[in-house]
């Protein structure tokens, strides 16, 4: 879990000028790099800013480093160097317990839903409150009335009212993903990280999930960052698209500025490999 390459730059304090930008900038990445083996860089010098309520997609070929980059943001994967400023705090150097506090404000949604399958929908959703509780409260499942009401209202909003007490292994993929989203929302996050949320779903469920995510960014003001491999979906939903190839950011602009040429650049390596093999 320790960072393998030490930071060569001192961590800068967030100055007042930067703090004012942070009022609307929810997340800023500065020179983020990641290497698993201290030789090859999987993520190369990424700078990125996300504003409040923005819906941003990261596209790129398989192995480009989308999942790695996303997990560097909440330090599920420790970046090798660079700074992460989230909600006005530099979280790069935070201790484990301080990082845990920050993670409560960052929800995460996974391709394989990552639910505890033998527990009910309700229990899984309430897991999102753990960051706000003591260890014992969490283990004993002591939730306040407000927390339970919050969980129920979120489930209702996602159209899962009828499945609250069902065990998660009895749900369809689309329903599971909605539970995953509910668990993230119950954290009351400022940022939602979604790693290929629709990659295991059929087109109909995919649309339901993407519509919900879009709605979340628009009406709740939560910033949503989504890894996608379908360019058309990214074009349809995003306020901004980021193109990643071999760990480098090749594109960062409005969807309408994404040209055929850009797409070829972003996916180029993969297309070449396909031709050669």
């Amino acid at each position: 879990m320790m960072s393998t390459i030490t930071l060569d730059r001192p961590t800068e304090q967030v100055t007042s000028k930067e703090a004012s930008i942070a009022a609307q900038t929810v997340l800023e990445l500065r020179n983020i790099e990641k290497s698993y083996d201290m030789k090859t860089l999987i993520i190369k010098d990424i700078d990125l800013q996300l504003k409040q309520g923005e819906f941003v997609s990261i596209i790129g070929p398989s192995g480009a480093g989308k999942s790695t980059l996303l997990r560097c943001i909440n330090r599920m994967i420790e970046p090798s160097s660079g700074d992460i400023i989230f909600d006005g705090t530099n979280i790069t150097q935070l201790s484990k317990s301080a990082l845990r506090k920050q993670r409560t404000k960052i929800g995460m949604v996974f391709q394989h839903y990552n639910l505890v399958s033998r527990l009910t929908v309700f229990e899984n959703v309430l897991h999102g409150r753990f960051g706000y509780k003591s260890t014992l409260q969490g283990i004993l499942g002591l939730y306040t009335e407000e927390e339970k009401m919050l969980a129920l209202s979120i489930l209702e909003k996602l159209g899962m009212k009828d499945h609250v007490y069902k065990r998660c292994d009895q749900l369809s993929g689309g329903q599971k993903q909605r539970v995953g989203i509910a668990r993230a929302l119950v954290q009351q996050p400022k940022l939602l990280l979604c790693d290929e949320p629709i990659a295991s779903l059929d087109p109909n469920s995919s649309k339901v999930i993407m519509d919900h995510l879009k709605e979340i960014s628009q009406s709740m003001g939560i910033t949503v960052l989504v890894n996608l491999h379908q360019v058309d979906v990214a074009l349809k939903y995003s306020d901004r698209i980021i193109g990643l190839n071999r760990g480098s950011k090749l594109f960062d602009d409005l969807p309408k500025r994404l040209s055929q040429m850009d797409i070829r650049n972003i996916y180029g390596a993969e297309v070449d490999e396909l031709i050669f093999e």
Binding site: R103, I106, H112, S117, H127, G131, G141, Q187
Partner: peptide
């Protein structure tokens, strides 16, 4: 339980919350 563990860690759960609520239910049987 790898998936559930990852999700609970991402919510900011403590280690033993993750163990008792993320690992135990699915591995108990």
């Amino acid at each position: 339980s790898a998936d559930g563990v990852e999700a609970l860690n991402a919510t900011g759960a403590t280690y033993f919350q993750m163990v008792f609520k993320g690992v135990l239910p699915d591995t108990m049987p």
